[in-house]
Design a protein around this nucleic acid. Structure first.
Lengths: 150, 150
DNA sequence: GCAATATTGTTGACAAGTTAATGATTATAG
DNA sequence: CTATAATCATTAACTTGTCAACAATATTGC
């Protein structure tokens, strides 16, 4: 009796499934971050948006969406919530009134500062335990995977 | 002027962020699968559940959740929808009446057969373009990452 | 200048993710 | 045996993901 998928017409087994492996890796990785952020009522997504805008400076929403890996409808809602909580500001772009330029407020920067040490600690621990070289290999492979045209 | 995070007190830059790299890789990978499944009104999550139960045989929901990387509340809704559409069946376990045992119906198996060739094709193409060896390295690294205790 | 087209962001509707709380049932401690 | 605790699945409430449709504004081609 064989279990070769080619013989049975079955699907590739899920035990070495790349999509699920990516999901699981994310769970492992983000769990401590989510626990940290839950103390400030900040979701993983809001944290991504705050960090991206903080690092790049004032940005339009399409750029934020691309960088933070969010779709525009989600981003719209997240930014409205962050604006409501006083962590971001939006201003209509002078050159193109369709665009709104998003900026981190001082309150937003304070929140980022408040968590940055612990956030860095988490990823430093990861790097220490997993190994800097393996981490780099993994990042390279993941970037290369994004280039594959399926 | 330096941009070294150690000097500025800023966060690790997002341009080499592992969490976002994992997200992007998943997007690349799942886009063609989602397009394929959309023709049958099947979400990526429903597809995962169908495949997992199909491969493992009758299962209780806690096991499905663990294997398919879903939380129980999401799984409950997904299974109810799949049951409504006649793709799965649920039966109370004889040994433990808290548990319900989930089975794929013939209609469910037909749907899986209908898409299995194309699904395999997608991942065969990926393997061909990305390289089997790199794919294995990537899977190994991702599995190892899940073992890291942060 | 003006109609057709594209871009930017928003909204609506619904599925799925997340946390907390809740029955129902089973296991365990005393 | 019984009270307590643990497990399985569901529900509730809210956020986010996803697709389609939509205004508002810019751009392009004529």
């Amino acid at each position: 009796m064989t279990t070769d998928p080619a013989d049975t017409g079955m699907l590739r087994q899920t035990n070495r499934s790349l999509p699920i492996a990516l999901l699981r890796a994310r769970e492992t990785l983000m769990e401590p971050v989510r626990i940290m952020l839950s103390k400030s009522q900040i979701s993983e997504q809001k944290w991504r948006v705050l960090r991206v805008v903080s690092e790049s400076g004032p940005m339009e929403q399409t750029s934020i969406a691309r960088t933070a890996c969010l779709l525009l409808p989600s981003l719209t809602r997240i930014i409205h919530a962050l604006e409501r909580d006083g962590l971001l500001e939006r201003n209509v772009a002078s050159t193109d009134r369709r665009k709104s330029i998003v900026t981190v407020t001082e309150k937003g920067r304070a929140l980022i500062r408040e968590h940055s040490a612990q956030s860095n600690q988490i990823f430093d621990d990861l790097e220490a335990q997993f190994g800097a070289e393996k981490l780099n290999t993994l990042l390279d492979l993941l970037e290369e995977l994004q280039q594959v045209k399926i």
